[in-house]
């Protein structure tokens, strides 16, 4: 099934103004979609839709206080929507929306929507590096860093869910929607990618008690490790709070930097994730500090070795 990945994640928030400021400072572009809703877009049009939690336009809230209301997935074309509709109609109510999209609940009660993807094709260079022994990626006089260098989220990368029943979640996404498990962190859960996306993961499930069900974090791809560091540094200087990072994960190899948010989930900048095809054999490792990262760093104020031994 040619599902491309998450187009949008929809949240019903308590602090609408704070959330709007947060998302814009994170590097997303606000687009007002109607009188009470805003989409904050990455460069390819994917992103986060927010409304006040009491807005009747939102899908119902989860039984927990988690603010996630819906996951919107993009598919390659309308024939994929027909396939999904046929599959899902076997055992649940599927709503065909005016725009051709589909809406239904998964087996754990998460609201899902599928649509022909709204992703705009990006045509931008990856971060370029120079290394001895390899052809230079940046030509003479081409600088690696500048004060005004852009560091904006390019596309919605993945969504991580707290799920009370991993088996149910996996059976649904793998068995019914054709997702593939790429790796498994034992004690936490599996990484998955859909048939139409070669990223290491667009989804990750974490096993939790039912009272935690919801979204744990979502991530946006950056143009490379330097862009990730620059974006995270700028965000930190605006007063935002790191949760974890910067660092580099093992599974997926992606660089990461997680921040707290007024949406009650983490927002992650990620960069340089592995790609996989169907020949890949999933690895397993026990979840913990060793398996979850190659290295972990911590932001600090700029400092330089200057002045004499007395520190003057």
């Amino acid at each position: 099934m040619n599902i491309v990945g998450p187009d949008h994640l929809v949240f019903g928030v308590e602090d609408l103004e704070g959330s709007k400021q947060y998302l814009e400072d994170f590097g997303l572009t606000p687009v007002q979609i109607d009188a009470t809703g805003w989409c904050f877009e990455a460069l390819d049009g994917t992103g986060v839709i927010i409304r006040h939690r009491d807005d009747p336009k939102l899908p119902p809230a989860l039984p927990t206080r988690n603010m996630l209301r819906q996951q919107v997935y993009g598919v390659a074309d309308a024939t994929v929507l027909d396939q999904i509709e046929a599959e899902m109609s076997r055992d649940r109510r599927v709503t065909r929306l005016a725009d051709g999209g589909l809406e239904f609940e998964d087996d754990l009660g998460f609201s899902l929507r599928f649509q022909v993807t709204i992703r705009r094709a990006l045509d931008m260079p990856a971060e370029k590096i120079n290394a001895p022994g390899a052809p230079a990626q940046r030509g003479p006089n081409e600088l690696g860093v500048t004060d005004d260098m852009p560091a904006l989220p390019r596309t919605l990368s993945h969504v991580v869910l707290f799920v009370p029943d991993i088996d149910k979640a996996v059976d649904f996404f793998v068995g019914r929607l054709g997702f593939v498990i790429t790796d498994i962190l034992q004690g936490a859960g599996p990484f998955l990618r859909p048939g139409g996306n070669d990223d290491h993961h667009t989804n990750f499930f974490i096993r939790t008690p039912a009272y935690m069900q919801g979204c744990e974090h979502l991530a946006f791809h950056m143009g490379g490790p330097t862009e990730l560091m620059v974006a995270g540094d700028r965000f930190t200087r605006k007063g935002y709070q790191t949760f974890w990072g910067p660092g580099r994960h093992r599974f997926g190899s992606n660089w990461f930097w997680y921040f707290n948010s007024p949406l009650g989930v983490h927002f992650e900048y990620d960069a340089d994730m592995d790609k996989h095809d169907d020949s890949w054999v999933a690895r397993e490792a026990p979840n913990g500090p060793e398996a979850s990262q190659m290295f972990l760093l911590q932001w600090r104020e700029k400092w330089a070795p200057m002045g004499g031994p007395e520190g003057k």
């Binding site: 935690m212 949760f243 948010s261 009650g264």
Partner: peptide, 23 residues
């Protein structure tokens, strides 16, 4: 750490201390 921005420790209603990591 629990704030989402410097000094932003309360929930949207101001009635509770909130951890903005997982709500």
């Amino acid at each position: 750490p629990m704030a989402w921005r410097e000094d932003a420790y309360l929930d949207g209603t101001g009635q509770h201390i909130a951890c903005h990591a997982h709500g």
